[in-house]
Design a protein around this nucleic acid. Sequence first.
RNA 1: GUAGGUGUAGCUCAGUCCGGAUAGAGCCCCUGACUGUGGCUCAGGGUGUCGCGAGUUCAAAUCUCGUCACCUACCCCA
Length: 430
Amino acid sequence: MIKTYKSIRGTYDFSPEEACQFNKIAEKARHIFALYGYNEIILPFLEEEGVFVRSVGETTDIVEKQIFRIAKRNDSDSDIVLRPEGTAQVVRYYLEHALYKQSDFNKFSYIGAMFRGERPQKGRLRQFHHIGAEAMGSDSIFLDAEMISLALRLLDEIGITERKLNVNTLGCQVDKEKFMSLLKKDLSARRNELCPDCQRRLLKNPLRILDCKQENCKKIAISFCLSETTGKTYLCDDCNNKFQELLKLLKSSNIDYVYNPCLVRGLDYYTNTVFEITSTALGSQDAIGAGGRYNNLIKNLGGPDIPASGFALGVERVMLALNKSQAQISPDVFIAVIGENLRDEGFKMLRDLRSAGVHCDMDYCAKSLRGQLRYAEKKDINFVVIVADEEYKQGLVILKDMKASTQDKVKKEDLIEVVRGAIADGEGAA
RNA sequence: GUAGGUGUAGCUCAGUCCGGAUAGAGCCCCUGACUGUGGCUCAGGGUGUCGCGAGUUCAAAUCUCGUCACCUACCCCA
């Protein structure tokens, strides 16, 4: 028995229709990125492990459990991994080429596959795609507002209207640490009321307690957040003022947002503004896009102290939320041939029509005329050129309009012009 | 890593509880009726490791155990 193969767990095959949808999303994203001044870069799938350990955070699951490592070719090789996310990699690129020396402000966008060894479920794959943007060199709230409005604009353009925007601020590094220690102190006292997962988080990553899904933990988290944020006990004046200004700016830009004091991000590098866009069309993996400010990341990866902000959309999640089946792309013209002896004439016509830019195809399976017409019908092809012996002797072919159920005899040499005219008429009518 | 659910034709599924002879349906696809014309109709067209492996039994898709895969949720995150 010969072994048969299946796709690797957590990978996904895009069908022609899905690939078409994917490409349309990418095309729209590129258009909007250009409009907003973000230049696309294409970076490798492979990256040195340290890039992510020192940015995303050693204790995050992404680094601790989900990294795909590539086998070393020899002992002197560094630890190579498949990239689990884009931001840290873009920063590596930015630093390696010392782009801050050429310009004090840089904007980049990227579209590409990311890899995480998670357990697959709805909206969660091991190989998936991010569409992202990063901007380095500004601490302005106008940049944060641009990031948020850019992410929303992309979703608008793609056609996702059912969505919710959550925003919050973690404060600068000092504030964030202060907040975490307050959180730790407060919740340690109520440790027994927390779920086992949260008891673990308390030691490892206390911020994550704030978005636990257990009802009881949620209540505790909310009451803590409200008391801390209303009292502003952790946020310094500068961070607080900036965040209030950002909210005002969002409001004046007519962006609907929900201020969610419990919103945190799982990656260590985030500071200050964080945001997340969710869709109810998904399952429990409902974030279709997220991002925020990462003012310490560039410094932590060995660069100068430069502030930055960014976000990413999950393409597969966006496609799930869109839930729109994409029509197949069908040719405009099909060439049906009666009898094998005219097949090479049909093939020549096919070539000439294609040279003239007409989207067309023919039968490769020696089907009967009936079979060929059935095929054209199934593929939703509007025009069929029938090459038949009797007419061909007189220098004619039959052009059949499948929608109108009419047909005319056309001179061979006029075929291209007539076909073009017919297609143009069809498009005009539609 | 944890929990629950599901694995039967290319697809969607019935049959499993309560074991019984060649394992079914719909969809899709192909052929023909129509020797040169699609859609409608009708008639044909299936060698399916019943996920895999053991066990129980005269007999297993059906019962037991193991195992693998997928789905959903936890977790994590886009």
